[in-house]
Each structure stands twice: as structure tokens, then as C-alpha cells.
Simulated scan of single mutants.
Amino acid sequence: MSKLKIAIQKKGRLHEDSIKLLSSCGISIDNGKDQLKVNISNFPLEILYLRNSDIPKYLEDGTVDIAIIGENVLIEQEPNITIVQRLGFSKCRVSLAVPKDVDFDSLNYFNDKEIATSYPNTLSKFLEENNIRAKIHKISGSVEIAPNIGLADGILDIVSTGSTLFKNGLKEVKQIMKSEAVLAKSNLLSLEKEELLDRFLFRLKAVLKAKNSKYILMNIENSKIEAITKILPVLKSPTILPLTEEGWSSLHSVIDENEFWEVIDELKIAGAEDILIVPINKMVN
């Protein structure tokens, strides 16, 4: 029987989140130290731990079938692959930064300057689109040090919190794109592996949907049920159970985490009491 080969980052910011996501999908991972290929016993899956920058090529030539990878890496390398699911973690931005004491007022600052980056293709396109003439220094890592050692006047790099820039005496001046972890697939999958991918995606989407939703319970007077159900976003319709106290019911539903506080305030105003919010482990439609 075929196995779906998935590549994840061998180490770094995506590694731990990728392992947690697979575990949430019921994938039992048991690998020894420094083991770079792991067969999964409870799902037709094989995990390959690879360097982040190598993953797009492995996807493109079909060596691996799917991968969890940063969107920014795919934009930089432009492989012939397909993004099948955005994962919502490892969010960052790709930004230009300059020394803190630089008086930066526009992108024209970079004209005839030198910029260090690990994303030369992304930077080159941005500069061209904005008619900026600058020299690009390609650096594999530790890009933030370039201005401090006189190698460059600014950098283009990924930024999460900005603390690394601050520690190196830099400030963010222009965000050129946002990025997050995505699930990407090779365009060379067989029909059998496409079916395996569908099974894997079923689990993955159930986990992601649950992560972004909350189960909500509240007590309400029966006379207020209609008004409250109009406020409450629901899957189809809320569950309503009678309480032992006459004239009262318990209403159960699901809300999107992004609407959490706005919905709660409205429900309280409309008369909801004893509101409970419960995390959801899995959510299957």
C-alpha cells in the first residue's frame, strides 16, 4: 500500500508547530534522535525531516508528496506546486529594516544603497516594482548583523515580534508581504495518493476548524430565546434544553473565536446568564 510522504522542517520555527499539528490529527510520531525519515504506524504516512530551503525542490520533483512550509519560502523559490491549506500558525511578515538612527522617510532611501537578505528574488521583484535601484547581498543567515559590520545599509528579513531587529539596533520600515505556514502538495501525485491526501485533509480541517471555534453554553429565559438566537452565529441552529427551573432553558452553540468578545457582550445585553466557553478538540462537518 502506498504511503503519503510529508516533509517538515528538520529544525527551526516551523518544526515544533508541525509536530503538534500532526499529533492533533491523530498521527503517532515515534522517531529516534537524528532520525530523518519516520514511518507512521497508525496512518499511511512517512515523515521526512528536511532543510526548509530544500523542501520546495523535493515537492516539485515529486520526491515528497506534501509539505508543511512557510509561504514566504514558496514565494521566494516559485516552485511548480500547489498550496492546498493555510494553517494559521508561524505567522510572520517579510520586511525591510534599517539602523535605528537612520532618518527614513520613504523607499527612496534605498536608492543606490546595499540591502542584505536571504530572499533575493522577493527583494529584487519588490525593488523593480517600486523603481528602486539598490545592490542586493544574498546572505544565508544572521542577516540582522549586516548593517552593524558595514556590509549593507538595510536588510530584508522575516519578522515575528521585532525583538531580533531591536536587539541588533534595527527598526522595521516597510512590510512587503505577510506569511504563514501552509500545506503544499506536489503536482505529480498519483490518484491513490490524492485519495490519501483527502483522508489527511479531513483530519487536518477538523483540527483547524476546532482551533478557531469555541463551544458556548448559557442560561436564558424562554421569552428571550428568539432574540438571542438572532445574535448568535450558529452552525445550523442552536441546541436548546429545558432547565428544572420553569421558564428557563440552556442554549448551546458554537462561535468563531474571532467574534468571541463582540458576541459575548451582545448576548449579555440581550439577557444571557451563566455563560460558559469551552474549547473544542475536533470539529467535523
Score class of each variant (00 low, 15 high):
G88R: 09
E226M: 13
P233Q: 07
L217W: 02
K268R: 15
F202L: 15
T244P: 04
L251F: 10
K125C: 04
Q175A: 07
K57A: 01
D101G: 08
H252Q: 13
L107Y: 03
K113S: 11
I145N: 01
Q35F: 00
I55C: 02
K135H: 10
S213F: 06
G154K: 01
K20T: 12
S18F: 05
L232S: 05
G32P: 01
T82S: 09
E192K: 13
D34A: 14
P238Q: 04
L14N: 06
L48A: 00
P279K: 04
G271L: 08
D103F: 10
L59M: 02
K5R: 11
I8D: 01
V207Q: 03
I216N: 04
V182M: 06
V73E: 11
P233H: 02
N111T: 00
K113P: 14
S53W: 02
N219L: 09
L151F: 07
T244S: 07
N121K: 05
N52M: 12
N72F: 03
R199S: 14
Y109G: 09
E46S: 13
S140E: 14
D265R: 11
I145W: 03
S24T: 06
C25K: 05
S24I: 03
K167T: 01
L36A: 12
T122F: 08
S190T: 15
E246Q: 11
A272M: 07
G88N: 07
A97K: 00
T122Q: 04
T229Q: 11
K113Q: 10
S24F: 09
L165M: 09
N281I: 13
I8H: 07
N285Q: 12
P120A: 05
L251P: 03
Y215Q: 13
V84I: 09
K224C: 03
G247Y: 04
E46T: 15
R93P: 08
A181C: 08
K174D: 05
R203S: 07
K209S: 12
I264E: 08
N31R: 15
E226N: 09
E195V: 05
G88Q: 08
D105F: 15
N222R: 10
A184D: 04
L267V: 00
Y119E: 03
K214P: 10
K100C: 12
F260T: 12
A97S: 12
I81W: 00
L208E: 04
I280Y: 07
S18P: 14
N31H: 15
G247M: 08
T82H: 01
P56K: 05
I231H: 10
N39G: 11
E76T: 02
I280M: 13
I139D: 03
T122E: 07
K236F: 15
F202R: 13
E128N: 10
E144Y: 04
M177D: 00
K11M: 14
T117F: 07
D61F: 01
K185G: 08
L4Y: 00
S249K: 01
S118W: 04
L267S: 07
A272Y: 13
E144N: 11
K57T: 02
P44E: 11
S163D: 02
Y58G: 02
K20G: 06
F166P: 00
L189Q: 03
L74P: 01
D17M: 12
L21C: 12
I145D: 00
L189A: 03
C92E: 15
A210Y: 13
K193Y: 09
G32E: 14
L22K: 05
I132D: 00
S118K: 13
L204M: 06
M283E: 10
I136N: 02
G169H: 11
